[in-house]
């Protein structure tokens, strides 16, 4: 991913392919998203952040619902840049409750929300999602509607939310269709995000790069690509005030400049110059 140009990523919590049956299973997952995953990404020069939530699919299992009560202690963490993925899967009453509760959590914690739109009955699902968003304390300009496609992009655009498109090998969107949407909705280009996945299904984390290549092949400029693939996600997740795009050096060095504070070494002129140059 680094070789392909990836310098930062936001990993949203979601379903893992095997249903979880207890809240503790979520806590280990969230801990990994705030512990090992950022370390692993930093080893490869990639800044890692995450979005945390009880996902819509598992919000239907009463055994998992205690996660909602435990989320506040996670939503204060430095690495959390949104509440998500929340939204609808099968549009059940349990999903209604989890969605509105977590939109409120986002508002309470100064976080934007990443909202998954359903794969089945998508247009109706988007309409119902927007009803709940409008009833919530979270303004639409702090909501990213994800997994949009040609049938839902118009309604999503009219809502004032950010527009997310997930690029997959066989499902959701592909790079060429994405380029057509970007051309048709040119006036919305400052709030369109594209994302890729390395998840439980057939997915390819480099699909974002493929979108950039398809954009350039279709005549978009480098600046257009930079806006869609970098500036827009930085702007949206930056709404959290917690986005930190510096990658921590994971190489433990006893004499590392950064250890000077903890080890009592005086801050020299050379050290200061280095800091200012960062």
């Amino acid at each position: 991913m680094y070789v392909a140009g990836v310098r930062a990523l936001v990993e949203p919590s979601f379903w893992l392919g095997q249903p979880r049956t207890s809240p503790a299973s979520f806590y280990d997952y969230f801990d990994a998203l705030l512990g090992w995953e950022p370390f692993r990404a930093a080893q490869h020069g990639i800044a890692h952040h995450c979005t945390l939530a009880l996902n819509p699919k598992e919000a239907n299992d009463p055994r998992c619902l205690p996660v909602l009560d435990e989320l506040p202690r996670y939503l204060v963490k430095d690495g959390v840049v949104a509440v998500g993925e929340i939204g609808y899967d099968a549009m059940t009453p349990a999903e209604d409750t989890a969605l509105s509760a977590q939109l409120q959590l986002a508002a309470d914690h100064g976080l934007p929300a990443l909202v998954h739109t359903p794969h089945r009955d998508k247009a109706a699902g988007l309409a119902r999602t927007l009803d709940v968003v409008h009833e919530s304390a979270l303004p639409t300009d702090r909501v990213l509607l994800d997994h949009l496609n040609e049938t839902t992009v118009r309604a999503a655009t009219d809502s004032g939310c950010w527009l997310g498109f997930s690029i997959y090998p066989d499902t959701k969107m592909d790079p060429d269709r994405m380029v057509r949407v970007l051309r048709e909705y040119a006036s919305e280009r400052d709030r369109i995000l594209v994302n890729s996945a390395a998840d439980w299904g057939r997915s390819d984390p480099l699909k974002t790069r493929h979108v950039g290549e398809a954009m350039l092949a279709a005549g978009f400029t480098d600046d257009d690509v930079d806006q869609v693939l970098w500036r827009n996600p930085v702007a949206f997740y930056g709404l959290s005030g917690r986005l930190d795009l510096d990658v921590e050096d994971t190489t433990p060095q006893a004499t590392h400049e950064g250890n000077s504070i903890l080890r009592g070494a005086p801050v020299t002129t050379a050290t200061r110059a280095t800091e200012e140059g960062r």
């Binding site: 204060v76 430095d78 005030g241 917690r242 930190d244 510096d246 921590e248 050096d249 590392h256 950064g258 250890n259 000077s260 504070i261 903890l262 800091e275 960062r278």
Partner: peptide, 13 residues
């Protein structure tokens, strides 16, 4: 919340 409040000086530790 310490890191997001003390980040401005870009000192890793």
């Amino acid at each position: 919340a310490a890191a997001r409040h003390c980040r401005r000086s870009h000192h890793p530790e």
